[in-house]
Nucleic acid binder design. Structure first.
Ligand SMILES: [Mn+2]
Ligand SMILES: [Mn+2]
Ligand SMILES: [Zn+2]
Ligand SMILES: [Zn+2]
Lengths: 140, 140
DNA sequence: AACGCCAAATAGAACGATTCTAATCTTATC
DNA sequence: GATAAGATTAGAATCGTTCTATTTGGCGTT
């Protein structure tokens, strides 16, 4: 008796965005959006998908993540070393980056006030504000 | 009559850090520290050095930038797309990133208060705080 | 000034994350 | 079920950066 894989919630999200509900997109949407907020890398999500039995290529994971971003379902978090994380938390917020573990966590309370930023130079507009607090394990 | 290339200021900096005053390090230190605060990439600095007549390899530019960082003469700024910038401004400060021009600028006044950050999780310590405000040219 | 030791510089290969390309497969429609 | 448009794929290409093995050069000693 096989598991129910209708993925109703994922179905609904894809319908909303106008993206075709392919097997890959359904599976990835399920992994991303059916278990609370997440911070994933493309490679992390890819191996997770493979482990869960979903056959999908890394290229498709990248394509899908970018499409979900475009659709406003994900935000990107850029940090050092060319690693890009994708964040299902759409609220404006900062991040702790646990450098030793290479993991991201939302900053529980905003220690910064985006509205307190000085007005940007003429002819430009703010398109994003990233606040990244890097943490290392304390030696001892 | 050739230009005076004693680079007194650069000499002094290298002496302070204990790094040998090689031709390459002197030339790079001169470019970095003898004309006010700067934000440079390795490749940018490399081509600048080449144009100025200094013979230096890209590998050495990377080595030198890292050594200057280690010595506390430079800070790193990480942003999207694997591009790393090196900053001669050692004060804590945020950055505007002009995405269309790929240029960095210090945020004139701090719109955030580092001390207002919630205490980091047990067993960890803050090693850096990055605030990057990305700007795009306003269309019209 | 020549000698030798070791640090530093170098060219080029390797790397890791991401993007691209061109071929194959799916989905949606008729 | 045929068709056309869209999606997936493997593998090559790209980009910034790091590594490796070799050569060069700074500097204290003769
Ligand atoms: Mn990744
Ligand atoms: Mn660079
Ligand atoms: Zn987050
Ligand atoms: Zn700066």
């Amino acid at each position: 008796m096989e598991r129910d894989e209708t993925y109703e919630h994922a179905q609904k999200l894809l319908k909303m965005t106008g993206l075709r509900p392919t097997r890959q997109r359904l599976g990835l949407a399920h992994l991303l959006f059916d278990q609370g907020n997440r911070h994933v890398t493309a490679e992390g999500l890819h191996s997770e998908a493979c482990k869960s039995g979903l056959s999908v290529s890394l290229a498709t994971v990248y394509n899908t993540l970018h499409q979900f971003m475009e659709a406003g379902l994900l935000n990107q978090v850029n940090l050092e070393g060319a690693r890009t994380y994708f964040d299902t938390n759409l609220e404006p917020h900062g991040h702790y980056y646990f450098a030793d573990r290479r993991e991201l966590m939302d900053v529980p309370a905003p220690g910064f006030d985006k509205t307190a930023l000085p007005a940007p130079p003429e002819g430009t507009q703010i398109t994003r504000v990233d606040v990244i607090v890097t943490l290392h394990d304390v030696p001892k």
